[in-house]
Amino acid sequence: MKAITFNPENDKFSLKEVPVPKPINNQILVKVEAAGLNPVDSKIIYWKKMVNNMSQDWIPGLDVSGYVEAIGESVKNFKAGDRVLYHGDMFKRFGGFAQYALQNADTVIKHPELDAVRAAATPCAGWTAWRALVDKLRITSEDTIFIAGGAGGVGSFAIQIAKYFKLGKIITTCSAQKTQYVRDLGATHIIDYKNSDVVEEVLKITAGEGVTKGLDAVGRDNDILVADSLSYEGEMVELVDFCRPESYKNSFMSGLTFHQLSLGSGHRNGKKAEETLKKAGERFSGLVEDGAISVSVTKVISFTEVPDALTEMLLKKSTGKIVLKI
């Protein structure tokens, strides 16, 4: 089969012919229709040492839309021909940038009524946004929220989820060029992070109180901006780095609460974690099916274009959502 492989010896992505893997136990073999490209795929050069004995033909690709081709002997809930969608395990060898991929059946969902390209664009960013706002922050219409990085993958979905839950104030940061984009998604207040004191602006918008909920989808000290924008007993989710309460203003005396979130942790913490991952995928996909959340795909590419696309993503030279269509 054709596959994009990663060689940990030289950090190169290549298009190769490799054998089709065979599913065992609780695995399913998926014939890939489309696979979304995500920053975590390109950053394999940074996390490769977390994988013991990574092979020279490791296949990345976490977000996969396709059909079940074959099943392992323990699989009960899927059969050949079923259409599926999933967010894969970054520590498993046979990812989605290939004609066929392997995945644990317990973290796979029935494919939503969407075309393959749009579906493959959603899991990493969309399911993360759902888990952050719904599972961790438990947002309601009574909340106000500040989302750092509203024009990014997670941020853009988070704005739409907040709008769906009818939050009155949805505050976000972006560059001046992306203002209309995030406004169309549902942001009620937009701060140009390059030319504003972000915390001061959030406090102005909330009459000095701060927001009840916050999300950092950027990293690079944006956790400080989010934390310092919270109201008394406010809560925030950090997606990129570690929470560091000692760096936040009055975090103890304000009774703030901090959450860490890694979508991929759903693959390595038992059945409850797997069910949490699946439920997030099902709930988020339902909103996309119903038209409550829009999915924007910037570019659809072929196998030959994937190595360069991943390299450009690593160098932060690409923008928007890119999906491999097979």
Score class of each variant (00 low, 15 high):
residue 226 V to S: 08
residue 146 F to C: 03
residue 223 D to Y: 12
residue 309 A to T: 14
residue 47 W to G: 05
residue 26 N to T: 04
residue 246 E to D: 15
residue 156 S to H: 01
residue 28 I to K: 02
residue 19 P to G: 01
residue 228 D to W: 01
residue 250 N to K: 14
residue 155 G to K: 07
residue 1 M to Q: 03
residue 256 L to K: 13
residue 86 Y to R: 00
residue 115 D to H: 02
residue 157 F to Q: 02
residue 149 G to D: 07
residue 157 F to W: 05
residue 301 I to S: 08
residue 288 V to Y: 04
residue 194 K to T: 03
residue 153 G to T: 12
residue 156 S to V: 05
residue 213 K to F: 02
residue 134 V to K: 10
residue 63 D to H: 04
residue 178 K to L: 03
residue 176 A to Y: 00
residue 280 A to E: 00
residue 218 V to H: 03
residue 149 G to C: 09
residue 56 Q to D: 10
residue 242 F to E: 14
residue 122 T to C: 15
residue 33 E to G: 12
residue 73 E to G: 00
residue 35 A to G: 11
residue 25 N to W: 00
residue 89 D to S: 11
residue 140 T to A: 01
residue 237 V to S: 09
residue 305 E to H: 09
residue 294 S to Y: 05
residue 126 G to Q: 04
residue 19 P to T: 09
residue 38 N to L: 06
residue 246 E to W: 12
residue 190 I to F: 07
residue 44 I to P: 12
residue 26 N to A: 01
residue 147 I to W: 03
residue 295 V to H: 02
residue 50 M to F: 15
residue 106 D to E: 13
residue 56 Q to E: 10
residue 41 D to R: 03
residue 290 D to A: 14
residue 313 M to Q: 14
residue 248 Y to I: 08
residue 258 F to D: 08
residue 51 V to I: 15
residue 289 E to G: 01
residue 256 L to S: 07
residue 317 K to G: 08
residue 242 F to I: 04
residue 62 L to C: 08
residue 213 K to W: 00
residue 149 G to P: 10
residue 12 K to N: 12
residue 294 S to Q: 12
residue 270 G to M: 06
residue 322 I to V: 15
residue 84 V to W: 01
residue 229 S to G: 05
residue 296 S to I: 13
residue 199 V to S: 08
residue 283 R to P: 01
residue 231 S to R: 15
residue 215 L to R: 05
residue 116 A to V: 00
residue 247 S to V: 04
